[in-house]
């Protein structure tokens, strides 16, 4: 068997471009068979793998400014795959794949203890408080590449792992060992009308995501590109989602600073 390259799939989200339109959220729901309920306004009960937050600069009119921040799973690597959530799961229902850098979630393994939710500082993990129900006929739109989750388990963004599988299958069928950049793109990246999301292999210098984020792999993946940051960098979660903003106040909201004077 041929030795495969070690990938590190990641995302670069340009907050200067993101308009908060919500396409990514809906693309994700439609792609991943996310259920919906009559009232989804309690966002703490709502299952949405990607959430677009609205940040503000705290100033009053007309100096006020806002920025949208889409937040998929950050696919944290921690130190050597020691992601905040993976390390705590007692049943090994979520795992860090060292070959892709993807934090998986195995719904049929998860027994719903929710420890991983407590561990994730990004509020990425979602519990199925309710039974998923599709109104009669609407189950026709379900995607067979992703299994429907049952009540009582945790789910989260998978970086559309099944699309990776699909791409790999095709490559295998065509007797290729590698897949091209465009062959594996997540549903949210694909949909984003503002081209705010760039997805690819952070280990591959030819991929746009690598060029835009310029991860310093010898230094825990820290971004070297200007105005690029990761959420809560100091926690040591070592996420694989990089954000870009030309506005300093936005970058400041990406992490905690003890006080105003602390250097960003």
């Amino acid at each position: 068997m041929k030795k495969e390259k070690v990938h590190k799939f990641g995302m670069f989200i340009d907050l200067d471009k993101c308009t908060g339109c919500g396409s990514c959220m809906v693309a994700c729901m439609a792609e991943n068979n996310v259920p919906f309920r009559e009232d989804e306004t309690d966002k703490l009960l709502s299952v949405a793998w990607l959430r677009v937050y609205q940040l503000n600069n705290g100033k009053s009119f007309p100096d006020s400014d806002i920025c949208f921040l889409p937040r998929p799973c950050q696919h944290c690597e921690g130190h050597h795959g020691h992601s905040p959530c993976v390390s705590v799961c007692p049943a090994t229902a979520t795992d860090y794949d060292n070959h892709t850098g993807i934090v998986s979630q195995i719904y049929t393994r998860c027994f719903g203890c929710r420890y991983c939710m407590a561990a994730c500082p990004y509020h990425v993990r979602l519990f199925n408080w309710y039974d998923p129900v599709w109104p009669d006929g609407m189950e026709k739109s379900l995607n067979p590449d992703i299994s429907v989750r049952m009540r009582g388990v945790v789910e989260k963004c998978s970086f559309c792992y099944h699309r990776y599988q699909r791409a790999k299958d095709l490559a295998y069928y065509q007797k290729r060992t590698e897949i091209a950049e465009g062959e594996y793109q997540t549903a949210c990246t694909q949909a984003c009308p503002a081209d705010a999301i760039v997805f690819g292999d952070l280990n591959n210098p030819e991929h746009r995501v690598h060029q835009l984020a310029q991860p310093d792999n010898s230094n825990g993946g820290k971004p070297r590109a200007k105005d690029v940051f990761r959420l809560l960098e100091r926690l040591g979660t070592n996420p694989k989602v990089y954000y870009h903003s030309s506005r300093e106040w936005v970058r400041r909201l990406g992490d905690n600073f003890q006080d105003e004077t602390q250097e960003i």
Binding site: G22, S23, M25, A30, D136, G137, M138, P193, D195
Partner: peptide
């Protein structure tokens, strides 16, 4: 017009098709 992109409404088309 949209070069591979889609808005949240366009993306929900299947819900309109199969919905109640």
């Amino acid at each position: 017009i949209n070069d591979g992109k889609l808005c949240n409404l366009g993306l929900s088309g299947a819900q309109l098709l199969y919905g109640p």
